[in-house]
Design a protein around this nucleic acid. Structure first.
Lengths: 360, 360
DNA sequence: TCCATTTTCTTGATCGTTTCAGATCACCCG
DNA sequence: CGGGTGATCTGAAACGATCAAGAAAATGGA
């Protein structure tokens, strides 16, 4: 039809394609993006020629530059990627985000966050329409970096940033229920297995000094919740040992529990800030020949899928893990990201890992 | 110093910044990308002004367009994203990929793959330097779409594509070991819990017809491996029921096992193509009051983290899940993606879910 | 038949970088 | 003193698309 259709040469740009078909570049562009702007016949011809020439469609980078939209959102973890993927709660968040992204046909870019420098670079170089910040600690230097990009941002389980919408859970109420439950059962000698308090990792019972400066919001709130329940019973959180275990690892929790149980006044009830910690505590107990919940009660946090299936099944604080992701992604992908914050509910799930305090 | 520094106005482009400092655009660009091209003094001044003006660094889209590099790789699943994130093997792959990406400071873009149309669009629009294709079935229409982009590609556990490097595991040998193990223990009445054979989901014992057309390479190879072990003992794979369970779900495997055990000649040994299936089989057994491995032996596949912790601990075929991801990402991120394929080893791990055939 | 309207296609500007090929300048050496 | 040599810095040309505005062609109504 057109003499200058050369199927031998590959078309790399819209111009090549347009020339091959014998139309203008804009028309070729419209064939891809605005079907209503040209006759069906011509559109068909352009698309067929594109196919024949092996033209892979408009270059994404050029399109992004021109339109300013990228069609994907960036996810920034407070921890390194492989580490986050070891954690059931992050996976669940990811699942929630993915659900929404897929529905909206948006990509989900996992940003590398090895160290602060790498994270900063990743944030500057990310071709995204917005950021989700997950588990970022107070004072993290990447937060200002993100804000500088002037893109929509939603934080999840992070430090609260002025003017930035956030999704979080009611950590305080959840922790309060957990502690109230143990106290209700008559436990008076409690111990806490705590998530990281500060960005610098630490393993051991924390000093009053360290307790007073907590970088991670959920940790702070959960501690506060535990304390609130204790106050109601006339107990003092400051007298309860808080054992900090870095990185939500079972192994650390196991060793921590071992240490706690070896103390002069071993706890009868353990408040674990995660289900992984609770499982670690189980391991310590069984290692010492103690039975859960007969000799030791443990209440976890999160209600990860494993919690219900574990024997003994975990008594734990359920938080809507996947929902958090859904809410965050939806908030971010809204036309105008609303400047509101949502606090999702938590609720104690009683299963088999808690019982009356021994000697009652 | 320079009269035209206006800290009130935000600099949006390199030009703005350059003008504010009183240098050329190129120099401003060099301040960010080529420190050796300008004096330290000037560079410092440019960077400081950038900070002061709130310039977030060179626009990523423009940079990508110009350089042709994006600094991230795309991951395409054969299944929808939320579904893939429900699967421990995908998570492990992700972990491997993430490890390498983080080391190389590359992003990892999860592409939405709701349906073929969405996947095609996502592939065309993805700003990536290469693709990883995971678990893509034979005849998937997105494969040609990906190839059209003329970017490096590495397939993982997928249909093999001419000229495209691939990472896979020795499915055949692994399955063969699994079956040989059961046969060795005296089991003669076997049944297979199979992963998807074809893209159209199916739940039930498969016909000979369906067996002959398998879209998923690992499934085909594992079946072949089971058959090879059987042939050695004079058995015929075609006489062994193959129960197809869609989507690696425990629940389907449980129901499948229930059906199999209710048949006229219930199996004494079950070859599960995944650990999830094996766990489903456990549930069915315990539901019928059968003991594993006394009454029923089950051998899984994958060796997911849960396999060792489960009671009874799973006898299963270990495949290097994380390693697959590492290998794939490294291959893709090499300067010149090598056109070779790697087949990683598999190996039977004997634990507690297999024992001698009853009545021996 | 002719003007108004709609459909269809084109022109030219623009998005914000990077990069190549100089230009400028001081400096050093013979 | 003249020219070679680095060290710094600049100008202009891409990179490949989209979009607003306008031209050309087709359509319709009186």
């Amino acid at each position: 039809m057109h003499a200058d259709e050369k199927p031998c040469e590959r078309a790399r740009t819209l111009d090549d394609l347009a020339k091959a078909v014998g139309v203008s570049r804009t028309t070729a562009s419209n064939a891809f993006n605005r079907p209503e702007q040209l006759s069906a016949e011509l559109r068909g011809r352009i698309l067929r020629t594109a196919e024949a020439l092996g033209y892979p469609g408009p270059n994404p980078m050029a399109r992004m530059l021109r339109t300013g939209r990228t069609g994907s959102i960036g996810l920034l973890f407070g921890d390194t990627l492989p580490y986050a993927l070891d954690d059931d709660t992050s996976i669940a968040l990811l699942k929630g985000l993915a659900r929404v992204c897929e529905k909206r046909r948006s990509g989900l870019l996992l940003l590398p966050v090895m160290d602060d420098a790498a994270a900063a670079q990743a944030v500057r170089a990310a071709a995204v329409d917005g950021f989700i910040l997950y588990c970022l600690p107070d004072g993290s230097p990447v937060v200002p970096q993100v804000l500088e990009r002037r893109l929509p941002v939603v934080t999840v389980d992070s430090v609260s940033v002025e003017g930035v919408p956030s999704i979080s859970i009611d950590d305080l109420a959840g922790a309060q229920q957990a502690a109230a439950h143990l106290l209700e059962l008559g436990h008076r000698r409690l111990a806490i297995l705590s998530l990281d308090l500060q960005t610098e990792e630490h393993f051991g019972v924390v000093t009053r000094q360290r307790r007073s400066e907590i970088h991670y919001r959920p940790t702070a709130l959960r501690l506060e919740g535990y304390g609130a329940a204790m106050r109601e019973k006339g107990l003092d959180l400051r007298r309860v040992p808080v054992f900090e275990c870095p990185g939500n690892s079972e192994e650390h929790a196991r060793r921590a529990t071992l240490e706690l149980l070896a103390g002069r006044t071993p706890p009868t009830g353990i408040l674990a800030m995660s289900d992984r910690f609770a499982i670690g505590a189980f391991q310590a107990a069984s290692q010492l020949g103690l039975q859960v919940p007969r000799d030791l009660s443990v209440v976890g946090f999160d209600d990860i899928p494993l919690a219900a299936r574990f024997r003994p099944a975990l008594t734990t604080v359920r938080q809507p893990l996947v929902e958090k992701g859904v809410a965050a992604a939806e908030m971010l992908l809204k036309k105008r990201t609303p400047a509101i914050s949502r606090v999702l509910e938590t609720r104690l799930i009683q299963r088999e890992s808690t019982g009356p305090a021994p000697g009652r």
